[in-house]
Amino acid sequence: MEIRVNPTRMELNRLKRRLKMAERGHKLLKDKRDELVRQFLILVRENRELRERVEKELSSAFASFMLARASMPLEVLEEALMYPTRRLELQVSRRNIMSVYTPQFQWEAQKEGEEGNIYPYGYADTSAELDTAIETLARVMDQLLELAEKEKAVQMLADEIEKTRRRVNALEHVMIPRMEATIRYITMKLDENERGALTRLMKIKDVVRAKV
């Protein structure tokens, strides 16, 4: 379906310019999409590996945490973990992937109290199984943050790919064919007009010649 326009030469020129622009845009967007997909695939692969690793660690941490929970009264467990020994400072900056701004975390664990001690509790009434859980959780924390960063990036890239793909498709299957059709229509109309004018001229020429 073509666009409704006045079939004038000016309009034709304008449309031709727009078509050229659309084609260039289409090519650029297509390149952008391909690059986005490439980046996306790399990220997704990293993300999956990381996620599997984190999930494995977490499930073992939860298992030992559950065992610790089973061997300690809730009150004692709660008290033991009330006051963390570490405080995490998280700074969020941006990273530009094909003009998608994904978050980038920088974190620093600030240790309170004794250097390097991740166990905030005493040893007399806590179960040793809590040590294992805390140790695994402390180890997995860095990876967890990394995972959060990657996961968000993947999500944003997916959104962007979807948007770009829709734009590319709109250009390819709607905008460009439509403009081409319109151009064809205008050219034909103009040609038609020209032929009409020509015939008219010839007709007039005949009439004039007959009178002379």
Binding site: A80, M82, Y83, P84, T85, E112, G113, E114, N117, Y119, P120, Y121, G122, Y123, A124, D125
Partner: peptide, 10 residues
């Protein structure tokens, strides 16, 4: 150091 609380009281 929060651990000190537990240690002293234990």
């Amino acid at each position: 150091d929060s651990q000190a609380i537990d240690l002293i009281l234990d």
